[in-house]
Every structure is written in structure tokens, then in C-alpha cells.
């Protein structure tokens, strides 16, 4: 088992590396450009560093925080060579990631609960909720968990069909009532079914909704409350899916969804396509919600548990 673990995690690391390649390249190459021809960290280097961080969607506040810390260290140490900048930056980013309760996970797993562990998946339109659910169900099933899906996105055209296809692909049961059904009722049924068949995990898909639509956010609260009636602590995990290419609006999304449903985990998707690993840093700094999963590709295996050590290593290696 130990050997298998090792192989798996090596594969995983390679995938993370290649998935984040664009992030890494632009991050590192920009960083290198920042310090080229310089021997000490001066105002110009810091200005350029600011550009690197902001262009990676780290966000203004977190960027300023990082720059301030580096400035403080420069003034304390009086002289700092640019070769040290890389290391310091790495330390600072690792520190920011540690501040938000992210526990490094090695593999997909769910805590022991009485009855099924319920995951409710929420987010704005088009971030990749349904795809993430498909990948997550696949990963959990591979870990020997029995999974039930609930198609509570009854609004978007063909959303139910999309989840049905995923359930067939992964080979897990799905509970659905077709389009335009009451999502809370679908969630209720899913949990009852999961309980009856003694499933380990139930994953509930919900319709994408913009976080400033009050009625739709209230609907989420209702879906959540209804689940409570079947399984007292459900949903155990409320997973907010964020699109990795989203800019500063990601913070507002996290805030508003938290208000409606008490988000306790984040999944950041589409990290393979953009130079935007930076949003992970910003969100870790600004939100006290752990990043749990990241999506790094379109294949069924391309969802990973987030590991901050590996992530930082990937950025700088």
C-alpha cells in the first residue's frame, strides 16, 4: 500500500505540475524578469513584484500585504539580494496559505459520520459544479466509498441529463425528478435514498446562481434546511466551486454564499488554463475557508485534493 501511495502521489504531482504549468511559467518567468540585472531588492523590484502578483489575480490587498512584509524584511536586514527574494516570497506565500485552516490532505476521503456524509455543491453559473461533482464521485468511489448523486439543478436546460451522464460514466446511482422539479424536494429524496441504501456519501448538485440574487440565495438556504430534516447534521460539507479565472469577484462570491449557506470548503476549477494560481493565494489570505479541491484538467481524473505544500512547490520549482 505504501508503494502504491507513493506512485499515486508522484503521478498526482506530475499532473499538478503540468496543470499549473501556465501559472508556474508566468509566475516564475515574470519573477525572474523582475530581478534581472538587479543585485538588491529596491523600490523598482518591489514595483515589478507588485505587477507580477496583481497580474496573477492575487488581489490588491493580499499583494500589498506581501509587499509590505518583504519591505519590512528588507529594512530590517538592510541589505537583501535578489537571490533571496525567491525564498522569502515562497515563505510568505506558504505562510498565507497556512493561515486559513487548510489541512493538507493526501487523498480523497470523507470523515466518519452517522449515516451518509452529505456534500452540497454551490456556486455561480458556469464555474464547473456538475463536472466537479462527476470527478469527485469518481475519486471517492475509487477510494471504496459508495456515492449517491442528487440532481437538484432542475433549472438550467439539460443540467439533469448532464449529471445522469456523469453518474453512468462513474457508475454511481443518481436521484432525480427531472427538470423544473423543486430542488429542495430532490435533495430530500436523495438523502432518504442515500440513507436507505446505507451510502457513504451523498453529493447534491444545485443550479448556478449569481450571489446577488436574493431569492435564489434564499432557495439555497431552504435546500440546506430541508436536508437537515433527513440527516441531522447534513449537509456536512458545503462546497463552493470557484472558477480559477474569476477575478476579484471571487471574494464577493465566497462572502455571499457563506452568508446564505455557511460554506466550509472551496473547490477552485479550471486552474489548468490560466495564469491564475494567484487566486488561490488571495482567497486563502482573505477568506478563512479552506481550499479543499482543485480542478486541473478536463479528464475524469483531473480533480485533486489541495495540498498547500505541493502547490507552493509547484509555483516555485
Amino acid at each position: 500500500m505504501g508503494l502504491f501511495n507513493k506512485i499515486f502521489s508522484k503521478e498526482k504531482k506530475e499532473k499538478l505540475d503540468s496543470g499549473l504549468e501556465k501559472t508556474k511559467e508566468s509566475f516564475l518567468s515574470k519573477l525572474t524578469r523582475t530581478v534581472v540585472g538587479k543585485s538588491t531588492v529596491d523600490a523598482e523590484v518591489l514595483d515589478n513584484l507588485e505587477e507580477v502578483l496583481i497580474s496573477s489575480d492575487v488581489g490588491v490587498d493580499t499583494t500589498l500585504k506581501i509587499i509590505d512584509r518583504i519591505e519590512a524584511r528588507v529594512s530590517k536586514d538592510k541589505y537583501m539580494g535578489t537571490d533571496e527574494l525567491n525564498n522569502i516570497l515562497r515563505e510568505e506565500i506558504a505562510a498565507l496559505l497556512s493561515e486559513n485552516n487548510t489541512v493538507d490532505q493526501v487523498e480523497f476521503n470523507v470523515p466518519e459520520t452517522e449515516g451518509p456524509y452529505v456534500i452540497m455543491v454551490v456556486g455561480v453559473n458556469g464555474v464547473g459544479k456538475t463536472t466537479t461533482i462527476g470527478k469527485l464521485a469518481n475519486a471517492l468511489k475509487k477510494q471504496g466509498k459508495s456515492v449517491v448523486l442528487g440532481a437538484a439543478d432542475t433549472f438550467r436546460a439539460a443540467a439533469v441529463d448532464q449529471l445522469i451522464i456523469w453518474s453512468e460514466r462513474v457508475g454511481v446511482p443518481i436521484v432525480q425528478q427531472g427538470m423544473n422539479a423543486d430542488p429542495a424536494s430532490v435533495a430530500f429524496d436523495t438523502l432518504q435514498s442515500a440513507k436507505a441504501q446505507n451510502a457513504d456519501v451523498a453529493i447534491i448538485d444545485t443550479a448556478g446562481r449569481l450571489h446577488n440574487k436574493v431569492n435564489l440565495m434564499n432557495e439555497l438556504t431552504k435546500i440546506k434546511t430541508v436536508m437537515n430534516k433527513v440527516i441531522p447534521d447534513a449537509p456536512h460539507e458545503i462546497l463552493l466551486v470557484l472558477d480559477g479565472s474569476t477575478g476579484q469577484n471571487a471574494f464577493e462570491q465566497a462572502k455571499q454564499f457563506s452568508l446564505a449557506t455557511e460554506i466550509n470548503a472551496l473547490a477552485i476549477t479550471k486552474l489548468d488554463g490560466t495564469a491564475k494560481g494567484g487566486v488561490v493565494i488571495g482567497i486563502s489570505d482573505q477568506m478563512k475557508i479552506p481550499v479543499k479541491y482543485i480542478g486541473v484538467g478536463e479528464g475524469i481524473e483531473d480533480l485533486q485534493v489541495f495540498n498547500k505544500t505541493e502547490f507552493v512547490d509547484s509555483l516555485f520549482s
Binding site: 489575480d57 455561480v124 472558477d243 479565472s245 476579484q248 471571487a250 490560466t274 491564475k276 487566486v279
Partner: peptide, 12 residues
């Protein structure tokens, strides 16, 4: 293009 897109919008 999604209006919420961040800095990468220009590259895309």
C-alpha cells in the same frame, strides 16, 4: 466572455 473574469481576460 464572463464579465467576472480576472487579469487573464486579456490573454484569453
Amino acid at each position: 466572455v464572463d464579465s467576472m473574469t480576472g487579469q487573464d481576460a486579456v490573454n484569453t
